[in-house]
Simulated assay, not measured.
Amino acid sequence: MSDTRTLRHMAILRYIPQEPQYTTTRELSDKLSNDGFDINMRMLQRDIEILCCQHPLSCDDTVRPHRWFRIQGVSDASLEMTPSTALAINMLSEQSHYLLPRQVHDNLKGFFLQATQKFAVAPENPLYHWPSRIANLSPGFQLCKPIIDDKVMQVVERSLIQQTPLEIDYRPRPPRYSKKYQINPLGLVTRGPVYYLIATLRESGDYRHFVLHRIQDAELMTVAQHQVQDFDLSTYIKNGNLSFPKDNKITLELKVSYIEGYHLLETPIHPDQQVSYPDPHHFVLKAKVNHTEELKWWLMSLSDISEVIGPNFLRRELAESLEKAVRQYQSN
């Protein structure tokens, strides 16, 4: 690209404002002429087409003359993006939808578009094919996403950002009925397709987990939020509080078929698990784990290739559940 063309392109980018402002091709032509550029309308249109492939520019072609603007959320300093930066933004754009407030994610849509366009015009770049050569697949059978009210999500996110209490109208599992709660939101956690709002009740200070798609309405309160001392979301999750806890830690002893359960030797249930081999066809795992409902569900999923040896109460609990399942299948 010649120096003149480069300077002309830089000038065009400077003169295209960010939405909701806009400019027209004629206005751009006049400004470039005033800057001393010798350019006709055909050349300008070709320049704009090239720049649209490299930068987050857009056009409203439903009106005459067409209106050009830079997509909201992209500053002048970000008009150039290196291939490695574009790759990182491309790869993170999907995950950011779950981790960022929606209003922030919407403000970044220009960066995401710019990252996509950066590679669209440079297929010869060796990084171009990376997104098509790597994928993240969630384990197990996946359920569809529940429907979350957009207004509820916006209010919840605002309350977390501003540390403001909420009054929510919450619909629990049947047969219980909807109930209003006044809460102090502490954190938002995604588990697969489900969002959990961690909060304390304003009256008692007790911790509660509210499934976001069951919140029918949410309103910010004008009173000050009760601050929870020493609350750390990472520690709260690490301690198993979102795994439907039943008791504290237990020592799990699990006999597993060697062939079918070999993956448990490669991906241990605990970093300090102990392994023994009572016979050529089985191994026994022994480790301290959190006693949760999820542990029981996981053990049930392995019930055809494993046997809980201890603790005894957990062995009895699984046996009762399996007997119930057998009765259901034999009832017909």
Rank of each mutant, 00 (worst) to 15 (best):
Q103P: 00
Q103N: 05
V104K: 15
V104M: 13
V104S: 14
V104C: 12
V104I: 14
V104N: 10
H105I: 04
H105N: 13
D106Y: 09
D106Q: 13
N107W: 06
N107R: 15
N107F: 12
N107Q: 13
N107I: 01
L108A: 04
L108S: 08
K109M: 07
K109F: 04
K109H: 14
K109E: 07
G110W: 05
G110D: 03
G110T: 00
G110I: 02
G110Q: 05
G110V: 00
F111A: 05
F111V: 01
F111D: 01
F111G: 01
F112M: 00
F112L: 00
L113I: 15
L113W: 04
L113D: 10
Q114K: 12
Q114W: 02
Q114I: 07
Q114Y: 01
Q114S: 06
A115D: 07
A115T: 03
A115Y: 00
T116E: 12
Q117T: 10
Q117N: 15
Q117H: 09
K118T: 10
F119M: 06
F119K: 04
F119W: 04
A120M: 13
A120L: 14
A120K: 15
A120Q: 12
V121Q: 06
V121F: 04
V121E: 07
A122K: 10
A122G: 02
P123T: 04
P123N: 11
P123R: 09
P123Q: 09
P123G: 03
P123C: 07
E124A: 02
E124L: 02
N125R: 04
N125Y: 05
N125C: 11
P126T: 11
P126E: 08
P126S: 12
P126A: 12
L127F: 01
L127W: 03
L127A: 10
L127H: 00
Y128D: 14
H129L: 03
W130L: 15
W130F: 15
P131G: 02
P131W: 09
R133T: 13
R133Q: 15
R133H: 13
R133Y: 09
I134M: 12
I134P: 01
A135C: 07
A135K: 10
A135S: 13
N136V: 13
N136W: 10
